[in-house]
Amino acid sequence: MAYRDGNRALHKHGDIHALPHSPDLSVYVPMIGMNICAPTYKNIRKKSDITVLGYVVNGHGEIRVNSEKHRLGRGDAFILRKDSRHEVTALSDSSDPWTYYWYNLHGNSLPLLETFHLLHTPYIPNAGIEALFLKGFAAVKHKTEDGTDTQTALILSCTEIIFTLHKAVKQAAEYTSPIMGRMKLYLDQLVGETFHSEDFAHQMDLSFKQLNRIFKQHTGSTIYQYVLARKMDIARMMLQDTELPVGEIAIHLGYDDPQYFSNLFKQKTGMAPTLFRQHAKEIH
Results as ranks from 00 to 15, higher is better:
Gln217Phe: 06
Phe163Glu: 12
Ser177Tyr: 07
Arg213Glu: 15
Ala172Ser: 15
Lys170Asn: 12
Leu165Asp: 09
Val227Ile: 15
Ile162Tyr: 09
His166Ile: 05
His202Cys: 07
Phe200His: 09
Asp233Leu: 01
Glu174Leu: 06
Leu187Trp: 14
His202Lys: 14
Met204Pro: 06
Thr222Cys: 09
Gly192Ala: 03
Ile214Lys: 08
Lys167Pro: 00
Leu190Gly: 12
Ser221Asn: 10
Tyr186Lys: 14
Lys209Thr: 12
Ile161Trp: 01
Arg182Ser: 13
Phe163Arg: 12
Ile223Ser: 12
Cys158Val: 05
Lys216Asn: 11
Phe215Ile: 06
Met180His: 08
Gln225Cys: 02
Lys209Cys: 08
Arg236Gln: 15
Leu190Tyr: 11
Asp205Trp: 01
Ile179Ser: 10
Lys167Asp: 11
Glu160Ser: 15
Gly181Ile: 08
Lys167Phe: 06
Gly220His: 11
Arg236Phe: 01
Leu211Ser: 11
Asn212Gln: 10
Lys170Glu: 15
His218Ile: 02
Asp199Ser: 07
Phe195Trp: 04
His196Glu: 13
Gly220Tyr: 11
Thr219Pro: 02
Glu174Trp: 12
Thr194Leu: 02
His202Asp: 13
Ala172Val: 06
Ile234Met: 02
His166Ala: 12
Val227Trp: 04
Lys167Ile: 08
Leu165Asn: 01
Pro178Lys: 08
Phe208Trp: 10
Thr159Phe: 02
Met180Arg: 09
Val227Pro: 03
Leu228Gln: 05
Asp188Ile: 00
Met204Cys: 08
Ser221Asp: 07
Gln217Met: 11
Thr176Ser: 13
Ser207Val: 09
Asp188Trp: 04
Met180Cys: 04
Pro178Thr: 07
Asn212Gly: 10
Ile161Glu: 03
Glu193Cys: 02
Phe163Cys: 10
Gly181Asn: 09
Leu228Ile: 14
Thr164Ala: 15
Asn212Ile: 12
Gly192Trp: 00
Thr164Trp: 03
Leu187Ala: 08
Ser221Tyr: 01
Gln203Asp: 13
Tyr175Gly: 00
Phe200Glu: 06
Gln210Phe: 13
Asp205Phe: 03
Met232Trp: 02
Met232Asp: 01
Thr194Trp: 00
Ser221Val: 05
Glu174Ile: 10
Leu165Met: 14
Pro178Ser: 09
Ser221Gly: 03
Leu185Cys: 10
Leu206Tyr: 13
Leu165Ile: 09
Lys209Asn: 12
His196Gly: 03
